[in-house]
Computed example of a mutant assay.
Amino acid sequence: MAKALVMQSDFGISDGAVSAMHGVAHSVEAGLSIFDLTHDIPPFKIWDASYRLWQTMKYWKEGTVFVSVIDPGVGSTRRSLGVKTASGHYIITPDNGSLTHISRTTGIVEAREIDESTNRLPKSGESYTFHGRDIYAYTGARLAAGAISFEQVGPKVDVSSLVELNVKESRIDGSQAEGIIDILDIRFGNLWTNIQREMFKELDISFGDALEVTIRHDGRTVYQNDMTFGRSFADTHMGEPLVYINSLDNLAVAINQGSFANAYGIGTGSNWEITFRKVKD
Results as ranks from 00 to 15, higher is better:
H39T: 04
L143V: 06
N96L: 06
H217A: 01
Y136I: 03
N246F: 02
N250C: 06
V253T: 09
R187H: 14
T228V: 12
T38I: 06
G258V: 04
L191H: 10
V6H: 12
F276T: 02
L5K: 10
M21G: 05
A145P: 10
L203T: 06
D249H: 14
A20Q: 14
T93R: 02
T193C: 12
D209I: 00
H89E: 05
M21H: 10
V65M: 10
E126P: 00
R78A: 02
K168M: 05
V213L: 04
D134K: 08
T100K: 10
I172L: 12
R216C: 08
I266K: 06
G174I: 07
L143P: 07
S14I: 04
N190V: 01
L53S: 06
R277K: 15
S117C: 01
G88V: 05
H89I: 01
H217Y: 15
S50P: 08
S206A: 10
A234L: 11
K168Y: 14
G265S: 11
Y264T: 02
S117Y: 14
Q8P: 03
T129P: 04
D40W: 08
A234G: 02
L5W: 14
G82Q: 05
I70F: 05
D249M: 01
D115A: 06
N119D: 04
N96G: 11
V167K: 14
V163L: 09
T56I: 01
G31L: 06
P43D: 04
P241K: 05
D226C: 02
V67L: 11
L99T: 01
T56Y: 13
K61L: 08
E240A: 13
I114A: 08
K45L: 04
D173N: 09
N194A: 01
K201C: 02
I266D: 06
I255F: 15
A20D: 09
I41Q: 11
